[in-house]
């Protein structure tokens, strides 16, 4: 438990809690609430050999791979859905063997996090039998139910070193409010050794209580205020996702040279996140925040 009443730090300090070789869990999912500013900062700080676990993700994982920061990927899906397609850097790294793919299933990951949350040495899942998933997971075993005799696949606890979570608002203690879907974030917080959080805005605790606490601050080791910290993913209610930027990334990531170019142009910039936001441009960012003005405005962000 992290009981320091004031855990506010800057982004670079928060990122320093993640070490080379750590198992990390990234919050959010698909195109929503991805901790992109922290992902960029980890790349700037040259982090290596990370092992990422989670459910269905996209640019956060792909960018870590493009920048050479990832060694093991244990997600249930990495991609840009039907819209922008397969994840280019993930695909290339998996096909050339430069990362270890331990693809998993949302239910298995959830069960493993629950085992860690409960301090148990394993939990059973009903599925997996008959599929090829165990070829990717020699650590799974079988267990026989002492009551019914049913043979089930047993999975070990998953205890990430650090969970990295982005939320719209938080307070100095690290309490976090977010909108649904929370995806696995609550379980990441309970199962991990620590949480480092980034938020759009740090607010007084009374104001946060009015919104509701989703992740309690006692799980959180450090909190940093980073506006547009999920960009180009969405962070509702603050902003929608930046489909045009994601598309730019996917095109760049298709080739190693242009992927390097993206990392050089958008991530490894001397001015860090300030420079990143300036480069994206105030006009583009403001447009993403105006999704709620009308249905046409909202729809227009996706056409």
């Amino acid at each position: 438990m992290y009981l320091d009443p004031d855990k506010r730090v800057d982004l670079a300090t928060a990122a320093s809690y993640v070490h080379d070789g750590h198992m990390i869990a990234l919050g959010g999912g698909l195109s929503a609430r991805l901790p992109m500013a922290m992902v960029r900062e980890l790349i700037r700080q040259g982090r290596r050999d990370l092992h990422v676990v989670g459910s269905a993700h996209s640019m956060d994982v792909d960018l870590l791979i493009a920048a050479g920061a990832l060694a093991i990927c244990e997600e249930s899906y990495v991609g840009f859905e039907q819209d922008l397609g397969l994840a280019p850097a993930y695909r290339r790294a998996a096909e050339t063997g430069t990362i270890t793919v331990k693809e998993s299933c949302c239910v298995t990951i959830l069960t493993q996090l629950r085992a860690a949350e409960m301090g148990l040495p394993f939990l059973p899942v009903r599925g997996i039998k008959g599929t090829d998933m165990r070829r990717l997971h020699p650590e799974y075993a079988e267990t026989t139910c002492p009551f019914t005799g049913e043979v089930l696949v047993a999975v070990p606890p998953l205890k990430p070193d650090v969970a990295i979570i982005h939320a719209p608002v938080g307070d100095a203690f690290g309490n976090l409010f977010m909108e649904q879907p929370y995806v696995l974030d609550e379980h990441f917080a309970g199962a991990s050794n620590s949480v480092i959080a980034t938020v759009e805005k740090i607010v007084p605790t009374e104001e946060l209580h009015d919104r509701g606490v989703v992740i309690p601050g006692y799980f959180v080791q450090a909190i940093a205020e980073v506006p547009f910290g999920a960009h180009p993913a969405s962070c509702y209610p603050s902003y929608s996702y930046d489909r045009a930027h994601m598309s730019t990334y996917v095109q760049a990531a298709a080739k190693p040279e242009s992927a390097d170019g993206y990392v050089a142009d958008w991530v490894n910039v001397p001015g860090g996140e300030d420079e990143y936001r300036n480069k994206v441009g105030a006009e583009s960012l403001t447009r993403l925040t105006q999704w709620s003005e009308s249905i046409d405005q909202w729809k227009g962000l996706f056409s």
């Binding site: 459910s55 269905a56 997600e75 249930s76 899906y77 990495v78 991609g79 397969l86 994840a87 993930y90 695909r91 998996a94 096909e95 050339t96 063997g97 793919v101 693809e103 299933c105 949302c106 239910v107 298995t108 899942v125 009903r126 599925g127 997996i128 039998k129 008959g130 599929t131 998933m133």
Partner: peptide
């Protein structure tokens, strides 16, 4: 060394059973 690494199955591996 896959010819094509597809995205992955989400939760389908377990819930297709039940």
């Amino acid at each position: 060394r896959p010819k094509v690494k597809l995205g992955g199955g989400g939760g389908g591996c377990n819930i297709s059973a039940t």
